[in-house]
């Protein structure tokens, strides 16, 4: 309780009820008592990545008790942390009945908001997954970037603490540290905070998590116009004039180098021959190639003559 209060954002200090906090703490400690992987955690990880009631800027709805009860059945027979992670991640979309859909009304939806709409995009889906992990005592946090280096947009995903290190996973999971976005994350620019990969920390770290809603605008304020690509300055100025933008209060850590290293390692594992290349496909429903809503989640199969190439062509949900 003292940890949460000590580092609580001002907006939460004045709005959250004692009942909300007490229930959150009670069920976090139930998980610590019940699950062996949570019992074994050092206090520093339990406090910062299991106990917190929030991730980023989402509405502070009480999810802890519901998720503790809802997800217990998936992990009741698990003793291994990796098995427990996938016991939650594999069925979560069916359990909460939320799928990726850009028609969602809130970017940073809380679990309650996402479940009411039955849809979310990458931030809302990652919040759902992170909270589900935390509910069963699995340390988890959000990670993301304000802008890929190819300027194709932002992304948010989830990380879990396993084997004494952070590994990433998505709402539609493949395996730990494997996803379509690693090629983009691995090209992050350690010299430009717009292109960093950030992870959330509840406890202050000395820097902010700039991959959250309006993080891009906070960076603009921090870096000045010269630090932001010109094509985004007009959008930022418009948002500043038309939106209520809080001071930054989501703390973060810079984890860029870990993703660069992961990507380099993955390239070593699938080296290309001189006559080979990696082809990426982005599907649009119309000619507005700059609008993220135009991108489609489709199956892609590639043929050479009549021969269908064996591909990993499972539809990968676009994310935001």
């Amino acid at each position: 309780m003292a940890f949460l209060i000590s580092y609580m954002p001002k907006r939460d200090l004045t709005t959250l009820s004692a009942e909300f906090i007490l229930e959150n703490v009670e069920y976090a400690y139930k998980a610590r008592e019940k699950y062996p992987w949570c019992k074994a955690l050092p206090d520093s990880i339990f406090f910062n990545e299991v106990l917190p009631y929030s991730n980023v800027t989402e509405t502070r709805d009480p999810w802890r008790k519901d998720f503790y009860e809802r997800f217990a059945k998936y992990v009741e027979n698990e003793t291994n942390l990796k098995d427990a992670i996938f016991a939650i991640a594999n069925p979560i979309n069916k359990e909460v009945n939320v799928e990726y859909n850009v028609e969602r009304s809130i970017v940073d939806a809380s679990p309650k908001e996402a479940m009411e709409e039955q849809m979310a995009t990458c931030t809302g889906l990652s919040i759902l997954l992170t909270d589900a992990f935390r509910a069963v005592g699995i340390p988890s946090r959000l990670a993301g970037t304000p802008m890929w280096t190819n300027m194709r947009g932002n992304h948010t995903w989830t990380e879990v603490w396993i084997d004494n290190e952070w590994k990433f996973i998505e709402y539609y999971p493949k395996d730990l540290n494997k996803s379509w976005f690693l090629a983009d994350a691995g090209k992050a620019d350690p010299n430009n905070p717009i292109h960093w990969i950030y992870a959330v920390s509840y406890k202050p770290t000395g820097q902010y998590y700039h991959a959250s809603k309006y993080g891009f605008i906070h960076l603009y304020d921090e870096l000045g116009p010269d630090g932001i690509p010109k094509e985004f300055q007009e959008y930022i100025e418009w948002e500043k004039e038309n939106s209520e933008i809080d001071e930054p209060y989501i703390h973060g850590v810079n984890v860029t180098q870990r993703y660069i290293d992961l990507y380099r390692k993955s390239l070593d594992n699938k080296k290309l021959n001189d006559d080979e290349m990696l082809a990426g496909f982005v599907i649009f429903k119309d000619n507005d190639l700059t609008n993220s809503s135009s991108r489609m989640d489709c199956r892609v199969d590639v043929f050479k003559g009549d021969k269908k190439l064996i591909l990993d062509s499972r539809p990968v949900p676009p994310t935001i």
Partner: peptide
């Protein structure tokens, strides 16, 4: 935000790409 499949192909080669989505009749 994006949706990107990375597929290993041969350089300087012609391919047919089939894009489909059963629920959306694509």
């Amino acid at each position: 935000m994006n949706m990107l499949l990375k597929i290993k192909l041969k350089k300087n080669t012609d391919y047919e790409v089939r894009v489909s989505h059963s629920k959306k009749d694509i």
